[in-house]
């Protein structure tokens, strides 16, 4: 692991932390939903990076693909549900 990767991991952690703050703070359900959507993308990026630094198994990138797809479907479904109606 190069120092650049370590700094990058810290930055990704910081971004996840800020997103979780927004997730907890709200104030509307849409803010929370948006924060969890953002968290999905951050987690996807982290999983891919982790897949590289953990010695090049492509297990984690498969997890990342499935996670991205399920996260997307979940967010769209919840958004449509929150709106009420159709």
């Amino acid at each position: 692991m190069t120092p650049i990767i370590i700094v990058s991991l810290v930055l990704i952690g910081l971004s996840a932390l800020l997103t979780v703050i927004r997730l907890l703070a709200g104030p509307t359900p849409f803010d929370r939903l948006m924060a969890s959507d953002t968290l999905t993308v951050i987690a996807t990026a982290f999983l891919v990076l982790f897949s590289v630094i953990s010695g090049g198994t492509d297990l984690y990138i498969d997890v990342a693909i499935v996670y991205a797809v399920i996260g997307f479907i979940g967010v769209v479904t919840i958004a449509r549900f929150l709106k009420g109606g159709k």
Partner: peptide, 9 residues
């Protein structure tokens, strides 16, 4: 990504 998190706040 970190800037995006900051923007969210």
């Amino acid at each position: 990504l970190a800037l995006g998190g900051l923007g969210l706040i």
